[in-house]
Each structure stands twice: as structure tokens, then as C-alpha cells.
């Protein structure tokens, strides 16, 4: 299961084992709720538990980046595995988010 915590205006999202379009709807919705209610200015997506992702995952990151970057917020990605890094690179999103 995914997990959301806000620490010091930074939203930490622990992503689930599999991210597809079905799951993505819930993750985006939940993240957006917290974005509004908690005055978040940075999001950190944690891929530690993620074994599978498709382009819907890129959609989640792009969508959150668009919302946050309007007022200077940042998006961080941590613990991304080889396959996920490959996709981030191909989509060009690695140029606008911080991958650690």
C-alpha cells in the first residue's frame, strides 16, 4: 500500500509495488488533496517498494510537477530502480525533477 506523510511542508509519497493507470488515479487524487490542505511546497516520491511502473507513473510525476512548479515547488524522486530510471530518462522528466 502507498503511504503519505507531510513533514515540514514536504509531502512524502511512498509508492506501491505496482503503478499502473488503475492505481495512478488514486495516487494523484490523494496527493492533490494533501497539496491543497497542507500547504505543501515539495513532493518526494519514494520508489523503494516499486517493482513495476508504466507510463501512468510518468503521468503522476508530470502532473504533480506542473502543479507545484507554478509557485516554485520542487519534485524529488528517490530509490528509483534501473527500469524506472530508464523510463524517466526516455520521457525527459529527469531534466525537471531531482533524482536522488
Amino acid at each position: 500500500m502507498e503511504d503519505y506523510v507531510v513533514i515540514d511542508h514536504c509531502l512524502m509519497v511512498k509508492l506501491p509495488a505496482e503503478i499502473d493507470h488503475h492505481k495512478a488515479c488514486y495516487i494523484s487524487e490523494k496527493a492533490d488533496d494533501l497539496l491543497l490542505s497542507e500547504e505543501v511546497d515539495a513532493i518526494c516520491f519514494d520508489f523503494e517498494n516499486t517493482e513495476f511502473m508504466d507510463s501512468s507513473g510518468i503521468g503522476i510525476i508530470m502532473g504533480r510537477y506542473r502543479k507545484l512548479s507554478c509557485f516554485g515547488g520542487k519534485v524529488y524522486l528517490i530509490h528509483a530502480g534501473k527500469q524506472i530510471r530508464k523510463m524517466l530518462e526516455m520521457s525527459g522528466i529527469e531534466k525537471v525533477v531531482e533524482i536522488r
Binding site: A24, S55, I58, G59, G63, M90, S91
Partner: peptide, 22 residues
């Protein structure tokens, strides 16, 4: 085409076919 999507409002990234090809 990469990044082309007919449904941007759904946060589709437009990378589907590009990933299949790759």
C-alpha cells in the same frame, strides 16, 4: 509520437507507444 496524447486532462504522459517501441 512521443509526448503526444489526446487526453492530457487525464495526465496521460503520451509515452505509451514510445515505451512499447523501446
Amino acid at each position: 509520437e512521443p509526448l503526444y496524447t489526446t487526453r492530457p486532462e487525464l495526465e496521460r504522459s503520451g509515452m505509451g507507444f514510445a515505451f512499447m517501441e523501446a
